[in-house]
Amino acid sequence: MSAALLQIRIIREHSQMVSLLLSPLSYSFMQRGMAAAILVGILCSIVGCYVVLRSMAFLGDAVAHAILPGVAIAYLLNSSLTTGALIAAILVALGIGILTRQGNIKEDTAIGILFTAALALGVALISTIRTYAMDLSHILFGNILGVTQGDLWLTAALSVVVLGAIVILYRPFLIISFDPILAATLRLRISLLNNLLMILLAITIVIALQTVGIGLVAAMLVTPPATAFLLTRRLVPMMFLSAMIGVFSSVAGLYFSFYWNIASGAAIVLTATLVFVLVFLFAPHRGLIWQKIQKRSAL
């Protein structure tokens, strides 16, 4: 069914729309998937504001890929995959900081070395497992419909921790991101705060793995904040708008995934991308078309 036809049907029959939206939720796996998607949408979009403003997109992508060996080791040891992923993510995030600290290696080079090494280690470990292809695809592309009740509780608890830290440390994070020199004159513990932000990023990425997988986490971290950036002029409104875009993309993406039978992670990311493109074209002041019109009227 094309989007246009779907739309006409929605307008014609309100009751049908309600059932269209509600019927997927009669499945408990969809309820859990929806809850997870909303939490991930909020968390990624808010933490992602710092990723966008501090130009850490490559870093986020790298941490996501570097999680693989942690997941593989946890799988081989038969322990919690999420815990394994969390440990690997934090180690890699801090490792990049250590490699770049003495200044001989540039950050993007350090990231390139560490994340490919970790990814290779992960693939090597997973290739020793017999059901290799199946498990790997879940890790790479997410498996939102396989979210368990336990996963959901862990996701909720970690979300509260991360968002709490973002709220409490709002001013220190703002200052180390915008003006490290002011941070130094205020005697903020800059490297401690940077490491903390890296750990929050690592936790966020691990949570997002369930819905969009390693391959697409970076999109959830970057696309909604970049969209919000085009529409706002202050950090707090940017965070709120980004979270709204993230939630909308996650929920809408999940419905598209349900009705059109496409992979949920891909559907969510494509929805977020569509929102971005629309805003990029039509945003007041900063949109492409607005600027074209302004230029023409100036002539």
Binding site: L174, F178, D179, I181, T232, R234
Partner: peptide
Amino acid sequence: DVDWKFPVT
């Protein structure tokens, strides 16, 4: 040395 695109007033 300042990031002028940072969303602050």
